[in-house]
Design a protein around this nucleic acid. Sequence first.
DNA 1: AGCGGCGATTCTGTATACAAAATACGCTCC
DNA 2: GGAGCGTATTTTGTATACAGAATCGCCGCT
Lengths: 245, 245
Amino acid sequence: MSGSRARAPDRARAGPGRGAARSGTGIVRTPLRSEVRRRLMDRMLRGDPAPGAGINEGRLAAELGVSRTPLREALLGLEWEGFVRTEPGRGFSVQPLTSREAEEIYPMLWTLEGLALRAGGWPRGQLAELERINARLGLAGGDAGAALECDVRWHRALLERCRNRSLLEAIAALKNRAYRYETHYMRDSGRVITSFTQHQAIASAIRSGDEPEALRLLEANWRVSLEFLEPWLRSGPARERKATQ
Amino acid sequence: MSGSRARAPDRARAGPGRGAARSGTGIVRTPLRSEVRRRLMDRMLRGDPAPGAGINEGRLAAELGVSRTPLREALLGLEWEGFVRTEPGRGFSVQPLTSREAEEIYPMLWTLEGLALRAGGWPRGQLAELERINARLGLAGGDAGAALECDVRWHRALLERCRNRSLLEAIAALKNRAYRYETHYMRDSGRVITSFTQHQAIASAIRSGDEPEALRLLEANWRVSLEFLEPWLRSGPARERKATQ
DNA sequence: AGCGGCGATTCTGTATACAAAATACGCTCC
DNA sequence: GGAGCGTATTTTGTATACAGAATCGCCGCT
């Protein structure tokens, strides 16, 4: 915790050349809003500003040690990604978790991931990589964090071959939205959604060149997650603060 | 035209209650950034800041009669939608039209529109609406503006039945990106992409309940547009200004 | 005691200020 | 005449200021 109530300008005193620098090396100066966005997303995935809670710009900016400007820019980005919403004179609030949203997102996810998968051409080595990651997932067992991490990695490897950058970005954004649901579910219920067997099946369908089957299995895989979430969402996930403004 | 070099604060003097007001009636106060975003999108669709051109925030803000703050917020939104991009210390520029992007977008479009279409349940009246709009498209003939307008309407009517709001938003954003390509193509080449016959075929497939066929035709419909665009994009669309900063 | 109105306070939305980086420009030196 | 360098200017990215709206709390009234 230490002294995290830093006033905004503190950070700015860091001297010239902020995040990283120099154009020659290919190292990029990242705008503050990007870093703020990442930090915020992290925190929200941990439920820090809880779903449904209002967001006080001034306070949050101070906590993060930046001014309201990059914070608002980050929040507007998160709005696009479905993490927060705004009501016209009342500012930002964390998007509540709803069965409706979950039911909307997952079909998009398996549809788009299917599209991305169809691109491929599967060299041997990449399939092996998939199976290696999945093995680790198998070992992760009940450790929710590690399991989710492996799951994310596995799906990333699955799309390795896809060259459609816009598609990958869209999928990544949707996955973040889904990820938010899954982390909250796991923390709240203590249960872990595990896809070990399904991943094996998908990989073996790919290995045998049966693409339609792979796509069906992939959809089924996502659908399982959704079906875990639905009863939980309907029964009202715990920790519903309405206005921790 | 008249005196459009208004300094920023001018607009703010409009007195209390800006865009529209009162919460009781359901009329919403729209944030300035939203209006700016719409205006910018309109202009960019007309090629006003041409693809590839840099954007000078100060100048553009003055032209629009607002300060840089809501302008930047609008531009960040347009970045998400693929209209604009930023380079870390160099600000915004209009995203160039590339065959690569077109090839990335259209498949997403037909895939997601297909997903949205599968939701339906097609009551008679809605099919009739589709055909009515398409009839108007048939009459529009060589008038590029009217034709595109009808096309957009037709696709909107096609998704009328879909209740997945997130999906509809994603589709709308993608359509805007595609729309940008098509308007530029038509203005630049003088040609009009017309989907009259294909729309008829899709509607009749729906009428006869042949969903897979409708989906195939829908994909084909988008693919035609893409195939018009590709040679044009490769041969380098006219008016490529690099830095009208 | 509950309800409604009114003033004080907080907060958002937008405008402006400011520092550092990028660019443009001219000047010197070869 | 051209390349290189150093300075002036512009422009972005971020911080701050400010106005108006929303919210909160208190008080009086019923």
